[in-house]
Nucleic acid binder design. Structure first.
Lengths: 112, 112
DNA sequence: TAAGTGTTTAAGCAACATCTTACACACTTT
DNA sequence: AAAGTGTGTAAGATGTTGCTTAAACACTTA
């Protein structure tokens, strides 16, 4: 998960993931989409994504085709989803309590 | 989303998020959980998380209580979930096609 | 086998992130 | 008001990241 989240923290790499989500794309074709950075830079991002097991590579002749490897995101998604949803339901629960008893601010006490 | 994902990329910050998921926790109490790093380091992580809008702060007397702000994760979760699930269903679809017609490797052609 | 095409690796650099120590701030208690 | 407690900020050292240019590798075609 650590590698996956670190990899996904970079906006260029996220854009690459979107590109290779639905179909295989060659390194060159990917690089074309990022005119502002050099080919080697893209290649390095691809290496990072591969190392994080977020993409698969297929070599075909001269080229290398990249494609999303969604399983690689599983742990990261689970972590964030857990943080997100269980906490949201907690908030909802509190809202109900708030509605039930309109106790003014009780300050710290409860947490001490 | 960018800030949120960058914030979550750090393992210490992820651990902090877990700590403050279910209840408010004071800065000092958080710092106690990380004996290996200094208090200021923890404070800086808390600042990062606050800036990324991943936690809320409540000042009470001397202390500051932190708590998860799950809404801050919404975009990040949505992004990863989209990449994850839509791509998984794609794989499933392909598996069906694979089962239907056992065409041997057709190599690149389709992608050219 | 030589030249061409697609891609990665190497080396170096500038920017950024994370940690530490020292200090400052804010609130509390005496 | 002074001392104590909880916390954040500043400054600087160190490691990491992401980029660039130059070179190398791998496969294809003439």
């Amino acid at each position: 998960m650590d590698d996956a989240l670190r990899a996904v923290a970079d906006p260029t790499r996220r854009a690459i993931l979107v590109l290779v989500r639905d179909r295989e794309v060659s390194a060159g074709e990917i690089a074309e989409r990022f005119p502002e950075i050099s080919r080697p830079a893209v290649s390095q991002h691809l290496r990072t994504l591969t190392a994080a097991r977020l993409v698969d590579v297929r070599r075909a002749g001269n080229r290398r085709f990249y494609r999303l490897r969604p399983e690689g995101l599983a742990e990261a998604v689970t972590f964030l989803e857990t943080m997100w949803s269980t906490s949201l339901s907690r908030l909802q629960h509190e809202a109900e309590q708030e509605e039930r008893a309109h106790t003014g601010d009780q300050d710290v006490k409860g947490s001490l």
